[in-house]
Design a protein around this nucleic acid. Sequence first.
RNA 1: GCGCGUAUAGCUCAGUUGGUUAGAGCGUCCGUUUUACAUGCGGAAGGUCGUUGGUUCGAGUCCAACUACGCGCACCA
Length: 728
Amino acid sequence: MKSLGKIYQPQKEEKKIYRLWEKSGYFNPDNLPKTKKGYFSIIMPPPNANDPLHIGHAVFVSLEDLITRYQRLKGKRALWLPGTDHAGFETQIVFEKKLEKEGKSRFDFTREEFYQLVYQYTKKNQKTVYQQLKKLGASCDFSRKKFTLDKDIIKIVLNTFEKLYQDGLIYRGERIVNYCPKHQTAFSDLEVKYEEEKGTLFYIQYPLKDGGAVEVATTRPETIFGDMALAINPNDKRYQKLIGKIAIEPLTKREIPIIEDKRVEQDFGTGVLKITPAHDPTDFEIAQDHRLLPRRVIDFQGRLNELAGSLKGLKVLEAREKTIEILKQNNLLIKTEEITHRVGHCYKCHSTIEPMIMSQWFISVNKPFGKEKKSLRDRAIEAVKTKKIKIIPKNFEKNFYHWMKNLKDWNISRQIWWGIPIPVYYCQEQKTEKCQKEKGIIVSQKKLKECPYCHSQNIVKDPDVLDTWFSSGQWPFATLMTAKKGDFEKFYPTDVMETGWDILFFWVARMIMLGIYCTGKIPFKTVYLHGLVRDKDRQKMSKSKGNVIDPLGVIENYGADALRMALIMGTGLGSDIILSEEKIKGFRNFANKVWNASRFVLMNIDDLKKKPNLTKSDQKILKDFQRVIKKVEKHLDNFRFNLAAETVYRYFWFTFADKIIEEMKIRIRENKNKESAQYLLYLILKNSLIILHPFMPFITESVWQSLPEIKGEKREKMILIEKWPTSL
RNA sequence: GCGCGUAUAGCUCAGUUGGUUAGAGCGUCCGUUUUACAUGCGGAAGGUCGUUGGUUCGAGUCCAACUACGCGCACCA
């Protein structure tokens, strides 16, 4: 008690307290006292192992630790399983930037060497991440921590690949993919950011073989070299007589057919669409239906190839200008028009995405399979529709359905070096029927020297790696199957998946699809989505804007408890989290209030040796408090964390500190029913600490350690494993 | 085009099933330092809860329309 100074100093207390918890071993649910029954589990969304934690991570730590601690208090054997993600593409970019600063690139190393370097780098970062989690007060079980590149995790991921392949749900195909010429890799549809942009629509004349001409509008004249047809809408009366005729592609004078297809919009441009199957998704689809072959004219560096003749080697934009010049000289450019259209950009470097034909691995999300004859997509939708999985806030369920409805096959190949290699070889000779039937594809997790079917040694390893979300999509069951024996049976399906709404599609949807596919069960019962952290001006926090709040700096200055409260209170369900230093200061003050109220109580009850009877009016005060506890409990059970926090906050400060303590102060001083007053203070303080503990774990534990012994009063040695108060 | 969301005090935001004088933090003004806390305490100013209409005994809360802003998805060449 004497040790409690006038001002709460989190820096002094937090380290000490965390060590106390760690020594107890209670973060591991297996070590909890026998009084804790029933299992509760939450898997941590693995932070990328390429950077220290930022404020966004502090949000999930605050919320998930809050949930875990609450469940522990409520008597559950609560498991919060931590881990880190290798974050394929993201990490490779971060690491390559680092190399760039040293004047190097990944091409200065062999692929093996590069992989090892990044591996070491992520290992180092993981240490930092785990230290930071501790600073935030995370009560996760570090003895179960996992990494997406742990051998046992990789094995599960590759098994899933194999299973999907055998079930015909994964296929290799030549498709139009989203290709970033700078990063030289393809992406899934989700990694493309579409933005409104001003562009020019060029009206170009295509001569007809039989004489005459037709006008075509395009924003990408440089792809004329890849034109394989012109298309018009079958209902377009203007062009009926052109169907079946031959047009002359105006640059290299190739003869191309005029076809009809209802995907052509009559109202756009001239109503005539040039079909460039190799470089446009719609054109690709139309070409497939009309059996037109793609003609690739742009290479993987984003430059025109030899099919463009003199324009070979020019970048797309340069080629566009040149093309227009040539067309002008030949009087084939009729007019230009300014338009705004949506253009896809690489979410990382903002380069214009080049739709390209590439051989890639896709997951068939819409193909029915199994006894139920339902697709991955439909099974996921059903899990949410039937409320097996609940999404909070509820309106995200609609977003989820909307997105799932539009879902197309998922490209999981990435042309990068950092990640889990696709476990496939290609037999180049295909000497046996079996080889040919498989189109030379050999799925194998082991290193192969020859084709297992025809024994040809002319085999090639697939050079690509898997999309990171393919592995993290298996995270809930992969972790529980490997962290500790028996965990999967006890803890799966997990209770809560808590993460940011920005990765609902990237991650959550994929976990649902892959979880159900691999285990036959949903991966989690409730999805809780939190908002993005923004600054006072509603700006997204980013390094480049210079408005980032470093969680560790905040902890250093104001304490982890203050930061956690600031992230939870005043934040409505589903809305973004507005954070400012002033707000954090406010909760630092609250921590100090808790400290001093506790100090006062401890100083004034040290002569209370045994439990007295309470006066009637004191019993009433206790009853009011009981109602507050119930309210907090209800809010927590409903995932209304901000309301729960506000309820505790207001009761502690405005009722307990401002009113009850002030009244009792006088009674103790004037010796009026003094013992009842003292005992009341003790009871309210003790139980306030418990209900406050999930929000502010450090200070509550710290005070708990100083509570005096009172005859007839029992309590746990650590508030961490106390029981949530039910009746007072 | 389809879908979702937001609009409450000077600023940033809470306000679950509609119900007594609409809340917090920061800021402003006045007072306050001998006794838990000035990271405090007491008090004050400040809101026609975006607009209009509707349901209701009663609406910040439900419904409709409108206005403004934001976001997601989609094959506009």
